[in-house]
């Protein structure tokens, strides 16, 4: 077993643990933190069902973003949808036999890689071209885009320029999942691609990528507009002690 294989195997265990553990931890912290007051933002549905629908349109169609800025929406939406397709496409490296629908998304996944790149470039261009967005961008915002672009580019390079041994790669990942390590092909582009993906997984719970779980916990989006009908109390507002008369007393 090569040193490289051991290194990458360990790297992916660490990355997976950080990603899963980190996001789970953050979700737990979000869930545990009380929201003492009702602060839904319109258009706020008056029912649970309405809220579910609202969240769905937010996370699938980026409704609010569409309303606020068509360019950001276009690039952002394309990037996210493409990313999803690409991720699904990659499932074939982790399933044996490959699930039939994963087979079906393969061609889409390929176009998606280009779309993803286009979306990223568009988003990045805004960081340079629009003075307002330039002002609010910090080095990490640029680096995050650089990382994603590099991942997409290295992936595409393997598809079209320097092919890698897919069979061996798949054996490596299938092996990782059952703790029986297999040799990883030592192609430089593949190694770069994998290393960057691992970095992305590790920074995920430490960075603004937390918006992914965060959006589901956002009280302005996920609260039902029923403050008068249902008494809401949590955290400090559940501990209010009233000096005067008690209800009805």
């Amino acid at each position: 077993m090569s040193v490289l294989t051991v290194l990458y195997a360990l790297l992916f265990y660490v990355a997976t643990a950080t990603l899963a553990g980190g996001v789970a931890w953050k979700c737990w912290v979000y869930a545990r933190t009380p929201q003492p007051l009702k602060i839904p933002i319109p258009p706020a549905p008056a029912t649970r069902r309405g809220v579910v629908l609202r969240m769905l349109t937010e996370v699938t169609l980026f409704r609010s973003l569409f309303r606020s800025n068509k360019w950001i929406w276009l690039f952002g939406w394309i990037f996210h949808v493409a990313l999803l397709a690409v991720l699904l496409r990659h499932l074939r490296y982790f399933t044996e036999p490959v699930w039939f629908w994963v087979d079906m998304v393969q061609p889409f996944g390929l176009y998606a890689a280009f779309a993803m790149l286009a979306g990223l470039v568009g988003l990045w261009a805004r960081r340079f071209l629009v003075d307002r967005v330039r002002y609010i961008s910090s080095p990490s915002d640029h680096l995050m885009l650089a990382l994603l672009v590099a991942i997409a580019a290295s992936g595409l390079a393997m598809k079209y320029l320097v092919h890698t041994d897919i069979i061996a790669l798949k054996a490596f990942f299938l092996g990782l999942m059952v703790f029986s390590w297999q040799e990883l092909p030592a192609d430089p582009v593949l190694l770069v691609h994998l290393a960057l993906v691992a970095v992305l997984m590790i920074v995920f719970p430490l960075s603004k990528l937390l918006h992914a779980p965060g959006v589901f916990f956002s009280p302005s989006l996920n609260q039902v507009d029923d403050a008068r009908e249902r008494r809401h109390a949590a955290g400090w507002s559940a501990k209010i002690v009233r000096a005067g008369r008690t209800p009805g007393g």
Binding site: S68, I72, V130, V133, S138, H211, G214
Partner: peptide, 9 residues
Amino acid sequence: DSCVKCGAC
């Protein structure tokens, strides 16, 4: 935690 600096606002 969640702001991605998209600039929409």
